[in-house]
Amino acid sequence: MPLKYTRTFGIGSLGIRSLPFLQREGDRLLSQQHFDLIYFSTTVFNAMSLGPRWRDRFGIPYVLDFQDPWQSDYYAKTGVKPPGGKFKYSFAQLQAKILEPKAIQKVSHIISVSPTYPEALQKRYPYLSPEQFTVLPFGAPELDFEVLPSLKIQQRIFDPNDGKRHWVYVGRGGNDMALALRSLFLGLQEARHQQPELWQSVHLHFVGTSYAPQGRAEKTVEPIARELGVADLVTEHPYRIPYFEALQVLVESDGILLIGSDDASYTASKLYPCVLARKPILAIFHHQSSVVNILNQCNAGRTLTFKSSDRPEQLLSLIAPQLQWLLSIPKTYQPDTDWQAFQPYTAKEMTRQQCMVFDRCLVPTPIS
């Protein structure tokens, strides 16, 4: 249903607008062709509610892939403003409480990017067994970096030949990242105060921080930079840019920033492209995030960790040396990444594991 009609009634959700049409087209396809398995991999969670319908009508097992939690009490517990505002988020969570139990009840298997999602789902649905879960993060897109030079992409975020050091962050923003951002900018403020001349050539770019369409994106990074007196070092580009242009931004940067949420379950899918860009990485993440373990295990970057209860001032002594390191390394620096340790996170290996999950779902369950 087109937005120009549904917005009249205050409805913009893609899940609501598309659901009857997904159901109709799915019914048609499943009745006319043979399928072995149905795989839902989307954050348009309402679509997952079609799994039980198609299993009952056509006898086809289905797998759900949780890239984010469907039900979440994070914003209620922390008081952080939810995306879209409290009313819209509350309505989305009401739908989740109604539809998630139905979608889960007959699922064959659940894939998730974070180990915390299976824990939460098993608490809500005790009948689920550990064998029904597989934690499978997004795979590292090695092939994309192999073909990138041949595409001759021109990124429009910064000029890599202007003599400056350009540090980049590519990914979403949000109020849940305020602790990491405040820590970073407080560290910048302190470092520049001590050696102002060194920081004249540094600029930080935050790219694609908003999901909102052109003209409606709200900046969440620059206001914090202004508050802490480093706005002249920071530019926020809230709009999303094309995928390969985003990779080119990483490749042409002098350093990559990874900013984490104060939600311990947050797993950044953007981690692997950052590693493959072969640039120095500084990650500021919750100490329980899988990002920390992966970076340390692969020796792909430096990490600064925090707890949800920490204050930016407490991290100042930790972040200052990291910023000095990032500023002091030569432009030609490449991390000494352990590519053998990185191998389990490649797209090829993740695909192999995913296919194993699919195969297991097709083995008939013995009748007891």
Rank of each mutant, 00 (worst) to 15 (best):
M1H: 11
Y5F: 14
R7H: 11
L19I: 01
L19M: 04
F21R: 10
L22R: 05
Q23W: 15
Q23D: 14
G26Y: 06
V44N: 14
F45M: 04
N46D: 13
D56H: 14
P69Q: 10
W70L: 06
S72T: 11
Y74V: 01
K77W: 01
V80L: 10
K81N: 12
P82G: 06
P83N: 04
F87H: 10
Y89A: 09
Y89P: 02
F91D: 01
A92K: 09
A96P: 02
K97L: 11
K97A: 13
I98P: 02
E100S: 07
I104R: 05
I104A: 05
K106Y: 08
S108M: 07
I110W: 01
I110F: 06
S114R: 01
T116M: 13
Q122P: 07
Q122D: 07
K123W: 11
Y125C: 01
L128R: 06
S129C: 08
P130I: 03
Q132E: 10
G139E: 02
P141I: 01
P141C: 06
L143G: 07
L148H: 08
L148R: 11
P149N: 09
L151P: 09
Q154C: 13
Q155E: 13
N161F: 11
R165K: 13
V168H: 03
V170T: 14
R172K: 15
G174M: 05
D176I: 05
L181S: 08
R182V: 05
L186V: 03
R192A: 00
H193S: 06
E197I: 05
W199V: 00
Q200F: 03
L204F: 09
P213Q: 02
E218K: 14
K219S: 07
R226W: 04
G229S: 03
D232A: 12
H237C: 02
E245V: 03
L250G: 04
E252P: 09
D262T: 03
A268Q: 08
Y272M: 14
R278W: 10
K279W: 08
P280G: 03
I284E: 00
I284W: 01
H287Y: 15
I294A: 03
Q297T: 10
C298I: 04
A300T: 00
T303M: 05
L304T: 00
L304N: 05
T305R: 06
S308A: 15
S309H: 15
Q314K: 09
S317D: 11
S317M: 09
W325Y: 12
L327A: 07
P330S: 01
P330G: 03
F342K: 06
Q343V: 08
T346F: 06
M356H: 14
R360A: 12
P364W: 01
P364M: 03
T365S: 15
I367M: 14
